[in-house]
């Protein structure tokens, strides 16, 4: 039973959040913030896979997010809603309830394939040169979207609200929140299991010493493929959720600025610390919201705060450690059976 305690408590919390939203205890603003926290958790943990565990420096996470966001949104609007772009819905709008996770997954797969644009060069390129490639991919995705007029080009794309609405017409609960909660749980679960398997630890071996890894039986190319595709795929899912939470996306949303935010979350949390990424995503989202009244000055105060934070904790909040390393008693709840090693 113990091995499921963390899962059960997460589900309980999630159900509680949904009930509280439904009954109005959590107002719309708090719900939005919760959903942004969730999306940021997915983004930071998935980028940590590449930047933390594998030790590369990807600066184009928003590009993959955009791929997922657009694929999922276009599919959903086309399939389930009446829109000026695509006309009447191709499927019964009520089927959105079941097919939403499918389109979300397709968006994720699309983003994972875009991740190949980085994964394949990464076989030969490392470090800062690879960083440029990720940067270029971010720009390429953004300007590709800008040039596809069918999906709105630079003007953006909307209609995702209707998709959520058609789900809520069937069962009236805040579906966007539900899906964010599910996806966050799934992301953390997947990454946790992956990086704690001997297979997944191969990416840490690549970070520590790629040559030794390749010579000591780790298929480094495959590990890089897996890490990049998993990372970008999850970013794509985060993008799909993001699009449906906001109801409107445009290419300008997915610039280097967005990538920078994710980078900050990863390094603030600590490279290669899953719990650090979760914590810093929560902290960062709350900080951003708390300083919203400052308007323009927000982006002066927040970076200053972050610089100070890094001065005090030059390895991020958690460093390389996990919460369970600092509070061993948590192991009873998380991480289930403590594996030897």
């Amino acid at each position: 039973m113990r091995s499921y305690s963390s899962l059960l408590s997460y589900i309980a919390l999630g159900v509680l959040a949904v009930i509280a939203s439904k009954t109005g205890i959590l107002n719309a603003y708090v719900q939005i913030v919760l959903m942004f926290i969730g999306i940021n958790v997915i983004l930071s943990t998935s980028l940590n896979l590449v930047n933390g565990y594998m030790g590369e420096f990807s600066v184009g996470h928003a590009g993959f997010m955009a791929v997922g966001a657009y694929i999922t949104s276009v599919l959903n609007v086309m399939l389930f809603t009446q829109s000026s772009l695509f006309g009447p819905p191709l499927l019964n709008p009520s089927s959105a309830l079941f097919l939403f996770p499918v389109t979300l997954l397709i968006g994720g797969i699309g983003a994972a394939l875009a991740g190949l644009l980085v994964a394949i060069p990464s076989f030969r390129t490392r470090g800062d040169y690879l960083a440029i490639i990720t940067l270029a991919v971010n720009y390429i995705v953004k300007s590709s979207v800008e040039n596809i007029q069918v999906i709105g080009g630079a003007r953006g794309f909307m209609g995702m609200r209707n998709v959520i609405n058609s789900m809520q017409d069937i069962i009236n609960i805040p579906w966007a929140l539900v899906w964010v909660i599910i996806c966050v749980g799934a992301t953390v679960w997947i990454i946790y299991r992956f990086v704690n398997s001997t297979y997944g630890k191969g990416i840490v071996a690549v970070r520590d010493d790629e040559i030794a890894a390749e010579i000591m039986s780790v298929n480094t190319q495959r590990m890089k493929m897996v890490a990049f595709m998993l990372s970008s795929g999850l970013a794509g899912i985060a993008g799909g959720l993001f699009a449906h939470v906001l109801g409107y996306i445009n290419p300008g949303t997915f610039t280097i600025m967005k990538s920078t935010e994710v980078l900050v979350m990863v390094y603030l949390g600590g490279m290669g610390s899953l719990s650090g990424s979760v914590l810093s995503a929560i902290l960062f989202t709350i900080i951003l919201e708390a300083f919203r009244p400052l308007q323009v000055a927000k982006w002066v105060v927040v970076p200053l705060l972050l610089i100070l934070l890094m001065l005090f904790r030059p390895e991020g909040i958690m460093g390389h450690r996990e919460l369970t390393d600092i509070f061993p008693r948590l192991r009873r709840w998380f991480g289930a059976k403590e594996e030897r090693g």
Binding site: V204, D208, D209, A212, M216, G272, R340, G341
Partner: peptide, 14 residues
């Protein structure tokens, strides 16, 4: 050339 941020045990597993 050991993997220094992984434990000795993990080194032997990987």
């Amino acid at each position: 050339r050991l993997w220094n941020s992984l434990s000795v045990f993990d080194n032997l597993c990987i």
